[in-house]
Design a binder for these strands. Sequence first.
DNA 1: ATGAAAGCGCTAACAC
DNA 2: GTGTTAGCGCTTTCAT
Lengths: 331, 331
Amino acid sequence: MNVTIYDVAREANVSMATVSRVVNGNPNVKPSTRKKVLEAIERLGYRPNAVARGLASKKTTTVGVIIPDISSIFFAELARGIEDVATMYKYNIILSNSDQNKEKELHLLNTMLAKQVDGIVFMGGNITEEHVNEFQKSPVPIVLAATIEPNNTIPSVNIDYEQAAFDAVTYLLEKGNKRIAYVTGPADDPINQKKLAGYRRALETRGLPYDEALIIEGDYSYDSGIEAYEKMAELAERPTAVFAGTDEMALGVIHSAQDHGISIPEQLEVVGFDNTRLATMVRPRLTTVVQPMYDIGAVAMRLLTKYMNKENVENHIVVLPHRIEYRESTK
Amino acid sequence: MNVTIYDVAREANVSMATVSRVVNGNPNVKPSTRKKVLEAIERLGYRPNAVARGLASKKTTTVGVIIPDISSIFFAELARGIEDVATMYKYNIILSNSDQNKEKELHLLNTMLAKQVDGIVFMGGNITEEHVNEFQKSPVPIVLAATIEPNNTIPSVNIDYEQAAFDAVTYLLEKGNKRIAYVTGPADDPINQKKLAGYRRALETRGLPYDEALIIEGDYSYDSGIEAYEKMAELAERPTAVFAGTDEMALGVIHSAQDHGISIPEQLEVVGFDNTRLATMVRPRLTTVVQPMYDIGAVAMRLLTKYMNKENVENHIVVLPHRIEYRESTK
DNA sequence: ATGAAAGCGCTAACAC
DNA sequence: GTGTTAGCGCTTTCAT
């Protein structure tokens, strides 16, 4: 049997209530009795049972984190931001992978609510109406991180993907490129749709035609970047530049192009997206759109703490700034 | 107020015990009453409170995971293995970053025990006596993953780092290399000491001298790999091969060498360690020692479930096999 | 400043 | 097969 608050109370000759007060830092305790209690705690090696506390207080100081895949360099960085801020506010994190699978996502949501988390940070791909329904039914606050919900009814933290893509493509356009390929992630992810919209707008702004042959869909992986270049190489009119939806795909494109004897950036300029650590681990180093993953996670968690404290929040939809980091994969 | 087991009992005209039985799949319930209860649950939207359950049953179906840094490509992969197996056995995971900081590690251990986790997977660097003491005091089982405790008193899952390093260096030796640099991670991590021992044994076996100038300490990062090569380049007698303690440092070495006009593998052969996804994201692709990160995590978690179930475990120290993946960074 | 006592929502004997 | 009844270890009024 473990030592309980009751044991401490007896050892210190006070009531459980008093022990509870000193443990919780309640100031209404005479210093001398506080000392007595602290000594008893020390002597007995008492460690408060957070589960009992959670049941009584209806707060667990635990938040749920639903993430597509923690082994992804992108999400891992987000998770770090979330965890750091959680720690800062004395929360722990229950972390689960969803693989962007809707059933898993909804199941995890329920599991976490059953575990009485005080709030949830959700990262996913396609947010359906069913998702939104469940989110709204939740008894605890939920915030989306790097995840878009089209109607903006759920608090979220993102960058402006459309504008970011626009900026990246415009940069390539300014360098004189007329045929720019877009290597995108899965088309069903709203984020990729936004990026595509930005790509199109950039072309339109310059009065250039939109050519579907230049849109190549990958799955975010390095290998799909490799394949993407293979497809480009077969085009009658080859692109002179490519905008990739993620750094990893951009690396695949670069290496595949180099394997074909193409020199970067002379014959092909490449811009990535995210500015993961990969971006500086290639030669030439990758010009890329900076998406502040860590910050998105950190801000999302910070926002969640405000909801959990029932603080007033002015802006439920936060959009963080992005920028382009210029390196040697572009001229 | 949320709906409780008591509400369901009333709604279904049964006792709480019966509701508890159907919720927990106890077979001692007449099918007709089971149905009645299930309907009541459905009607009321009842969701069992895991905290109350945890308090009553003394089991939380939650395990703690203490990890140095989830944003590291290496540990993130381990974490995925842990989480997948945890999910398989219906456990959730409380995940926290320690940054290999002893105080944080010990603090997290206590926090998790306070939260009544059913077990803990610990990943860290230097395991001190104090660590071992705390581990042994723990009321719940603990297993180490990719983490060495010199006396093997705590259950753990690893590969044979000494032998793996030996194999890698021997391979380089067999190719005729006489001067092989070793780019190591921090020397205070026992794992790096094991690798160093393997490096030395390989040299000794061939009767080659051990030259301290060839041991270059990095911090696991790409940049430290870059710097490591800079140092090598200044050596009077330059190495013809390098064995790097991690893939990321190996990439740094390769790129730095290439930036100096050295061609890989003709003028410098490079072997990495871990076989992270980075290994195939360089040109030339990296020959590396395969450390099965995912499996280490998965096996560690599996082992933990056995301890949690009080099953008999024959082997508390598990050593997974390693091998070398041959690619183009070696001749 | 301190204590008494009633829960929090559930499980687990034990009885019937 | 089902119900009764203690707890599990803590927080939180409410008194004093």
